[in-house]
Design a binder for these strands. Structure first.
Lengths: 302, 302
DNA sequence: TAAAAGCCATCAGGAAATCAGATAGATCAT
DNA sequence: ATGATCTATCTGATTTCCTGATGGCTTTTA
């Protein structure tokens, strides 16, 4: 392989413009440069690319085949350049996304589908984890971005942004004494055990590193804490107590027939839980991360 | 785009071997050449491809992305070279094949399927034509190769090779007086009109350009000539006469229920028709044409 | 701990490729 | 027939590229 890219450029310019002189003008070179470039290319390839018997050279069949190959190579070169420019302007070449496994899947997967089309070369890693895993993965660099349900304590090194709010519903087991009621009052609920998400488990979230993020409402004096909405739904369906969970968890096929929704008559405002996006303060701010943030925010809010 | 292919080669060698020195040894260059090549590449791309803080350089994330792009480009370059070598050794870049429309399709299509896999870049043209079209297309350069049923007269400029022999069967209309007979004698057949393929139509094939190729057997004094087996089968099914046609024509779904096969008791040898491949004397002798010739011969003979 | 080995970046000088401009021969259009 | 345009080729100058040497740095070895 003796030839170089400039010779391929000359070949395409000559093929497109129909003469070596025109190609030279287009490329801003001397005609002799194009002429010798193509002559050398022909020597290197062992082919006659142009039929020079007429006034203006005309591509041979072999020449046309080479033009097709050359065009593909230069297209790839342009792609390399484009990718280099994108990377040079800060675009991520890899992105690791950590998401709470209890988040609604469809909007997440739709966003990733669009992502795959728009940045086909991106190496994406997707980590599914429980409530507590997400911030620790982001904090230790395992993940660049994390999406999780709002929780009261987060490492200081992380920055948080609320990106959506999911409405919640109260559920009990289908055979629970409360299941028959059309509406219940808080005072009624408080006589039964409440299951809430909490992280870190059993800790007293009052330390100096506490950030915003409201803690899950404790409406009953008898509380069990778990780190997973799935575990909560599981226990609720066993009749252990009641819980506030996001709508999509209550609607999940595995639980839908086992649990019963409760409407709480005297709740000051509709129950909801925030979805937050966390990143290390310094990182996770490339163009793809920013796009993904707004995309997830839009899709989760529908 | 300032960079060149040598720099990409250096990048890959360095990435693969883990150090610039090793890459230089592998490429048969000085270490400084590799070092400056990669340094220039980094300047051109605006990226840091290697992390040089340690003893041996290690690819950055951006570097890995560029390695993937570069590998693809060099793969394409190898492909261009391979194609150039093939073309230089006489391989066709285009091939136009003219076939008699009455040839059996399945073996033809199977051969073309294999052809498409084996020479993916070949530009193939397939012309379907009647008996007379094939040799004229090959003679005037419209086609490179022709496949047709043996016919007595061919232009002098064409060379012919028999590549298969298809057995024939006699057919009459299902409601023809002969249709009930289990076996017929030639003397019986000769009392009915025979339809034969002939080309050129109505000509007296005795001119100076006559070549080998036996003319279709005229077993009856009353003969109609047509240039297409399909037209013959059509007329036979109308009860116009009887004909010798290749087995697959008699088995063609459109005619199968309309015609009846006859077995001729006193035919000296089983009726058959030769399939021939024609080319201009000078042309049609590239590797692909030769492969196609043997492939068609094998598949048509099954 | 000290020496040795291996690696990289950089520099200088020479080899090689590339380029622009000029020229001559060929082809096309008028 | 003539002028315009094209290609191939030559020449000298510029640029690029390469090798070999050197020094600084890191890792391994003694």
């Amino acid at each position: 392989m003796q030839w170089n890219l400039d010779q391929l450029v000359c070949l395409l310019a000559a093929a497109d413009s129909g003469s070596f002189s025109a190609a030279a003008r287009r490329l801003g070179k001397a005609q002799s440069a194009v002429s010798t470039a193509i002559a050398h290319l022909e020597l290197d390839l062992g082919l006659t690319l142009f039929d020079r018997r007429r006034h203006t050279p005309v591509l041979t069949a072999e020449g046309e085949a080479m033009v097709l190959e050359a065009r593909e190579i230069l297209r790839q070169c342009d792609q390399l350049d484009a990718r280099a420019n994108a990377l040079a302007s800060g675009e991520e070449s890899r992105l690791t996304l950590a998401v709470d496994e209890a988040l609604p899947y469809p909007p997440l997967m739709e966003a990733l589908t669009v992502l795959a089309e728009r940045w086909p070369a991106l190496e994406l890693s997707l980590l599914n984890g429980a409530q507590d895993d997400i911030p620790s993965w982001v904090a230790d660099g395992t993940a660049d971005l994390g999406v999780l349900f709002s929780q009261p304590t987060l490492p200081e090194a992380l920055s948080v942004r609320q990106i959506a709010r999911l409405s919640q519903t109260a559920i009990v087991a289908a055979d629970h004494p409360l299941a028959g009621e059309r509406e219940v009052r808080l005072s009624t609920l408080s006589r039964h055990r409440q299951l809430v998400v909490a992280s870190p488990l059993g800790g007293t979230p009052l330390g100096g590193t506490t950030q915003g993020g409201h803690r899950p409402a404790r409406l009953s004096p008898r509380v069990w804490q778990l780190n997973s909405y799935y575990a909560i739904a599981e226990l609720v369906s066993q009749g252990i107590g009641w819980a506030l969970v996001p709508e999509h968890i209550a609607a999940y096929p595995m639980y839908r027939s086992l649990v019963s929704r409760l409407s709480i008559s005297d709740l000051p405002e509709p129950a909801s839980v925030d979805v937050e996006l966390v990143r290390r303060r310094a990182a996770g701010r490339g163009p793809i991360a920013r796009w993904l943030e707004s995309e997830l925010s839009a899709r989760l809010s529908r």
